[in-house]
Design a protein around this nucleic acid. Sequence first.
RNA 1: GCGCGUAUAGCUCAGUUGGUUAGAGCGUCACAUUGACAUUGUGAAGGUCCCAGGUUCGAAUCCUGGUGCGCGCACCA
Length: 928
Amino acid sequence: MIAENVIFSGMTNDKEMPKAYDASSVEEAIYASWEKSGAFQPQGDGEPYCIAIPPPNRTGTLHLGHAVMLAIEDLLIRFHRMRGKRALWIPGTDHAAIATQVKVEQELIKKGMKNPREELGREKLLKEVVKFADESAKTIRSQIRKMGSSCDWTREKYTLDEERNRAVNEMFKMMYEDGIIEQGYRLVNWDPQFQTTLSDDEVEHKEVSAKLLTFKYDSDFPIAISTTRPETKFGDTAVAVHPDDKRYKKFVGKTFEPIFCGKRLSIIVIADKAVDPEFGTGALGVTPAHSMIDAEMAERHALEMVQVIGKDGRMMEDAGKDFAGLTIEEARKKIFETLQNADLIIKEEEVPQNLPVAQRGGAPVEQLPMKQWFVRVNKPFKSRQATLGKWKKGDKVTLKELMRHAVESKQIKIVPDRFEKTYFHWIDNLRDWCISRQIWFGHRVPVWYRASSVIPAEAGNQTVKDNPFGMDSRLHGNDKQEIVVSEKSPGPNWEQDPDTLDTWFSSGLWTFSTLGWPSPSVIPAEAGIHSEWERMREFHPTAVLETGYDILFFWVARMILMSTYALGEVPFRDVYLHGLVRDEQGRKMSKSLGNVIDPLDMIAKYGTDAVRLALLLGTTPGQDTKLSEEKIAGFRNFTNKLWNISRFILMQIGEKDINNLPTESVNTITNRWFLLRLHEVKGSVTKKIENYQFSSAGEELRDFTWGDLADWYLEIAKIEKHTPLQLAFILKNLLVLWHPFMPFVTEHIWQIAGFGGYCMQYQWPKGGQLPMNDKSFQNFEILRTLITDIRRLRAEQGIEPAKKVEISISCPPEIAKLVEENKAVAEYLSRSLSITIADSVPDGWVTTVSGSATIALNAAGSVDVEKERAKLEKEIAETEAYIKSFKTKLENKEFISKAPEKVRVEMETKLGDAEAKLQALKGRLGKG
RNA sequence: GCGCGUAUAGCUCAGUUGGUUAGAGCGUCACAUUGACAUUGUGAAGGUCCCAGGUUCGAAUCCUGGUGCGCGCACCA
């Protein structure tokens, strides 16, 4: 498993290390060496551990959000690989359909084209889009590598490649056969700018100020209504009022034929509880063809649907000849004038309104009735296999039930778990999913129509008089149309549906389409060759899906839908959602604000490891994080610290063979303390990574490395001369523990040290908990406190760090023994000329109390007696208050009877310590 | 409107089943600088844990009600 004779070009192989770590000069060679060695591919016979990368859109370059995703997933993959699992990280990219085509069209328009689709036609425009997407994929691949991502490049996938297309067609066919993909004539979200439908999730709401107009259709009509969209009123077929509204009760059920701006309407007055009698006039003009809500109401009352706005965003013939062909704005203005002239306007006011706009492009979205393909989420179908341990093959179930159960039954765990609520909320509000798009870049709908029976997509361009609502009956009279669902043309005279599929339809299959699904029973396997899916099946469900919380609905939910439906199992065991990366002020990073931090710039400047640490530490799952260049620079400092720690250790080891060092060892309390700490940290970090607490794991490691190792253990090693064997052991563990966080610098040092093989393939160390009441460990902590207290005393006295002073300590015998045994260490670290043990404090020396010891420092007469006295008194008061609070608690009968033993014993110990300290303080005061 | 989050040091944030005198990094201040590291070291200052109630022997932590900020979904016609 471990590669032999590893030599990185461009890397020194001896132990000559420059003073500072230079990431930019080594990272590329290290990555190339890893990749070449095959270490990114799953190896061994451990448990499978698979992550399917959230495929970045082929729309440009990677941003910090991707960098977070890559840092976390690489951490997980490296960690589990080192723990002996068969780790597989599948890289890939997403064609992103509308986002990519929109981007290319916008580029072409910038270059002077007016209407790229008309000017180029389907084939040529597609060629442009593909060219752009391929270019983008190249950039993305290089960027993923730059981040150090250890993904298996031999298995790179693309949502729009041939195999994924087969998966999409297969899925479409299955769902069509099961009756959960259906063609229907319904209200859909229409983007007039890019001339395509959108799913509910691709529509955003923008707050704008709108003019709310209260008016009557004509002077004879008895009820006034309000609207912000007068142009849709040509399509009104009813006026709805609340059933209990006395004002209008007498009109309910009656039909009127008002002339609205020259067009005769047929308006029935209906009673519906959805109407708010308090709002406006308490009456609502119902426009079934241009409002989802009105359409629902229309369904309840079997109302007619009249479409008056067309796909081009202009008024249609049904708006009357005076208005047909006008844009919405023109029509709105003209209606206003017409109503005003006829004195029909009652009120006019500015109101805030949430305007639906397209997520891509930002154009206002129209709601239009159209014939499209839908995935039906509430329609029961017969389960194809045993599913989620709840449904048997053949059981009736709906997609919504599957999606809900996968999370409800804890077969999928979402981190942080509060997003489960968000998920359920979304599921409850989920409507049928419109999957057909009128753009060209994407998976073509695998449906064929016999040429003579092709119905124009313009089906909606006529008044639908016969208005049966409900999905199945809304098929708009095309029942006789001949349809075949197939990957290939059924023969001559068949035409393929011109539409493409929503990009999320294909990315929903990602966890298993990347593993080679569909199975050979569907796609005949070549003789003797097992299908990839058969070989890779055991990697599904994947271990974890790691992504930003913003695409929980777009993608995560759809993967759950697809996987539970097609395979009967969840697509992943865990979902880890990271937060969005914002700038220092908490703003979203955007080009227009100019606050974008480019991960590549940062990598060039500070190294990949520093960038990774900055994105991993100081973050909380599901919580947005603020990132500044200073933060990255701070972690660059840490990589350099690690470098210098290693440099120091390797200097101590010298020319000896690091893998074959003499077995002698030094047994001091420092050594024992540190090895126990290392053991503890190993256990704790392992546990934290297993529980997705990356930030906490990293911070603990950093504090351990910088605080315990560099500042104490290695400083003491200068005096105690720990053996090379011990130092090498520590270095090895340190590099391995840090590797998943900062792969480059650890691997680089590993190679310089000559540990053999790759750090990335070394076995993850086992750790555990501290043994209880270890004497050496406790003694070291006492010693450390003593030294820190001497340093503080020096600083308080304004003694220059370089100046060596005399120290005298009076303390209980066991501490005296401890000090004597570690005198050299204590003197060195506290910069003392000498430390002596004495029964009492020499006259005129300044003191401080450290636990049960009193430390005295010879300040050579320069003591401010009054100041010292005030200090002592303050400290006595604080200690007394502290003791009092403890005594109160310990005297409380309820506390004694109810608090756990452990808490009580701890408190008693603390109280004892504090009382000893108080005695010492008081003794000093009496003397002074 | 419905739902979710969040409020802790000047800043960014930890604080995992409630249990010392609430922590870290950055920043600030003081001092140091030939020795692994100035991408450094030592030390210090800095907090009514948003407010008000409640539960508890004990609350930053749990409950209720406010307030500020942020987000998602739905939408008023």
